[in-house]
């Protein structure tokens, strides 16, 4: 897993990671350009106009229109950035949810210091949950006598996904605010108790990636991690079969 990470950004392993990295490089490029230009200008002024060189300073209250150029350039760049780069990418990430049929649909329930994945199983329907049934080996409190829940798969801290199909996930939390964060997929979404928040991403690389919690959720926040294992479709089928309680 460690070859995914270097000193720069982690490896891109989801469909919109490229777009997001593109805007990161664009922004940092512009920032560097602005900083370097201003640094040169400042150093020039400090040397040219130090007291030894210019004993009397230029007295003027005039602010020529040309002094507004940096602000105008900044505003134009930002307006272009928002309407031509920002809104399209943001709408793509948040609004273009793939259809249920062509994607792997599952629920992820966050709780204090573990991620519980809840697959609907072959019947595609999620079993009912009853909070009073929650115990160590039934973290979601799945109700036995509900037929849909028989083939549901519950796996803790281990998210299996097939390559080539987008994942459509419904995030919910049992207790406090967590944040589902997979650096390689460039996805981060707070998981708020009392809300079911849909997210989606499409893995583009087979391998093992890391889930982290990005929102302070108590004393175990630092060890609340999980693994995303992206497999070929066949391996994913075998895995689901092996996990289904027949």
């Amino acid at each position: 897993m460690n070859q995914n990470y270097g000193w720069g950004l982690p490896v891109q392993a989801s469909s919109y990671a490229g777009k997001l990295d593109g805007s990161l490089f664009l922004l940092h490029g512009v920032m560097l350009l602005i900083f370097v230009l201003w640094a040169f200008y400042m150093i020039f002024c400090l040397i040219r106009y130090r007291q030894k060189n210019s004993s009397r300073a230029l007295y003027s209250h005039r602010t020529p229109l040309s002094s507004y150029i940096p602000d105008a350039l900044m505003l134009i760049f930002e307006i272009w950035l928002i309407f031509f780069v920002g809104i399209p990418i943001w709408a793509h990430i948040r609004e273009d949810l793939p259809k249920e049929e062509t994607s792997v649909a599952l629920h992820i329930v966050a709780e204090q210091f573990a991620w519980t994945m809840h697959y609907p199983g072959l019947d595609g329907k999620f079993g009912k949950q009853n909070p009073s049934l929650i115990n160590a080996d039934n973290p979601l409190g799945l109700d036995e006598n509900d037929p849909d829940s028989l083939d549901d798969i519950v796996s803790v801290n281990e998210l299996h996904l097939p390559l080539g199909k987008p994942a459509r996930i419904l995030l919910s939390s049992k207790d406090v605010i967590h944040s589902f964060f997979v650096p390689e997929f460039r996805i981060k979404q707070d998981v708020v108790p009392g809300m079911n928040i849909p997210i989606w991403f499409e893995p583009t690389k087979i391998g093992q990636f890391e889930i982290g919690c990005a929102q302070l959720c108590g004393t175990g926040h630092y060890r609340m991690r999980g693994d995303v294992i992206v497999q070929s479709p066949e391996e994913f089928e075998n895995w689901t079969k092996s996990k289904t309680k027949s």
């Binding site: 201003w38 200008y41 400042m42 002024c45 400090l46 106009y49 130090r50 007291q51 210019s54 004993s55 009397r56 300073a57 230029l58 003027s60 602010t63 002094s67 507004y68 940096p70 602000d71 900044m74 505003l75 930002e78 307006i79 950035l81 928002i82």
Partner: peptide
């Protein structure tokens, strides 16, 4: 993004007040 413009304006004015100064 709009609120970043006044901050840029202030820093621009500070930097431009170095021009023609006797520092």
């Amino acid at each position: 993004m709009i609120i970043s413009v006044p901050s840029v304006a202030i820093i621009t004015c500070f930097l431009l007040s170095l021009k023609g100064a006797s520092i």
